[in-house]
C-alpha cells in the first residue's frame, strides 16, 4: 500500500495549493475594492504594466498581423478568396491573436517581474516589515497590481488590435498589391462591436490572471534566491497555461452568445 502514500501526498499538496490560491484571491480582491487605496502606487504599476509593455506588445502585434496576411493569402489564393484577407486579419487579431499574444508577452514580462519583486521582498522580510508598519501587504503590494493589470491589459490589447491590423494592411497593400482604400473599407465594414469587445474582456481576464499568478507565487516564495527563481518560473508558466485555458473558456462563452 506504500505506493498510495505519494499519490495521497501529491493530492493533498495540490488541494492545499488550490485552497491557498482561493483564499489569496479572495483576500486580494477584497482589499482591491476596500479603501484605503494607494493611488501613487496604482499609477506606478499602471505605467509599468501598460506603458512599458507597449513596445513588446506592439512588435508582437505588428508581426502577427503581417504573418497572418501572408499566410491567409497563401491559403485563400488557392480558391480565389484573396478579398477575404482583410476580414480574416481583423477578426483573428481582435478576437484571438491580439489578446492571447499580448497576454503571453505581458505574462513573460510582468508575471515574472512581480513574482521576483514580491519574492525578494518576502525572503528579505520586507513583507513582514510592512505588517509591523501598520500597512497591509495585500493592500499595498497586491491590490495595486491587480487594479493596474485589469485596467491596463484591455488598453494594451486595443492598441495591439490597431497595430496588428496595420501590420496586415502594410503587407497586403505594399507586398500583395491590395488597394489601400478597399482594404481599409473592407476591414471597417466587416468588424463588429462584439469582435473587439470580446477581445477586451479576454484582456481584462488575462490581466487578472497575470497579476494574480505573479503576486501569488511571489508572495509565497521561500528559501532565498532559489525560491525566488522558482516562484518566477512558476508565475510565468502558470499564467501562460491559465491564459490559454481561459482563452478557450471565454471563446466558448462568446461563441454561444454569438450563436
Amino acid at each position: 500500500m506504500n505506493f498510495l502514500q505519494p499519490i495521497g501526498n501529491v493530492t493533498f499538496a495540490f488541494l492545499a495549493t488550490i485552497g491557498r490560491l482561493i483564499v489569496f484571491t479572495g483576500t486580494a480582491l477584497l482589499h482591491s475594492v476596500k479603501p484605503p487605496f494607494y493611488p501613487r502606487i496604482i499609477l506606478k504599476q499602471m505605467i509599468e504594466i501598460g506603458y512599458f509593455s507597449l513596445p513588446v506588445v506592439g512588435l508582437t502585434a505588428i508581426f502577427a498581423g503581417m504573418v497572418l496576411a501572408l499566410q491567409s493569402f497563401t491559403g485563400f489564393s488557392r480558391f480565389s478568396a484573396e478579398s477575404a484577407i482583410p476580414n480574416v486579419v481583423v477578426l483573428s487579431i481582435t478576437r484571438e491573436l491580439g489578446p492571447v499574444l499580448a497576454g503571453l508577452m505581458v505574462s513573460g514580462r510582468i508575471a515574472a517581474s512581480i513574482a521576483a519583486e514580491l519574492g525578494t521582498m518576502r525572503v528579505t522580510e520586507q513583507v513582514d516589515a510592512l505588517t509591523t508598519l501598520s500597512t497591509n501587504p495585500y493592500k499595498y503590494l497586491v491590490a495595486p497590481r491587480f487594479i493596474a493589470g485589469i485596467t491596463m491589459m484591455p488598453i494594451l490589447v486595443f492598441i495591439a488590435d490597431i497595430i496588428g491590423v496595420l501590420g496586415g494592411y502594410l503587407v497586403s497593400v505594399y507586398q500583395l498589391g491590395f488597394n489601400a482604400a478597399n482594404y481599409l473599407q473592407n476591414t471597417y465594414d466587416f468588424v463588429e462591436f462584439i469582435d473587439v469587445f470580446s477581445g477586451l474582456v479576454k484582456a481584462a481576464v488575462f490581466g487578472f490572471i497575470i497579476t494574480l499568478m505573479g503576486c501569488y507565487h511571489g508572495y509565497h516564495s521561500k528559501g532565498g534566491a532559489q525560491g525566488v527563481g522558482q516562484a518566477t518560473t512558476n508565475a510565468v508558466v502558470s499564467a501562460s497555461i491559465l491564459i490559454l485555458c481561459f482563452n478557450y473558456i471565454l471563446t466558448g462563452i462568446f461563441f454561444s452568445i454569438d450563436g
Binding site: 528579505t124 522580510e125 500597512t135
Partner: peptide, 26 residues
C-alpha cells in the same frame, strides 16, 4: 502594531524607497 517598532535582522529596508521614506513609512 501601532504600539510596536521592529528592527529586522537584515534591516528589511524597502529597496524602492529612499532612506528618509523608509524611516517615515510608518
Amino acid at each position: 502594531n501601532d504600539k510596536i517598532g521592529m528592527l529586522f535582522q537584515m534591516a528589511a529596508l524597502f529597496d524602492s524607497q529612499s532612506v528618509w521614506e523608509n524611516v517615515a513609512f510608518g
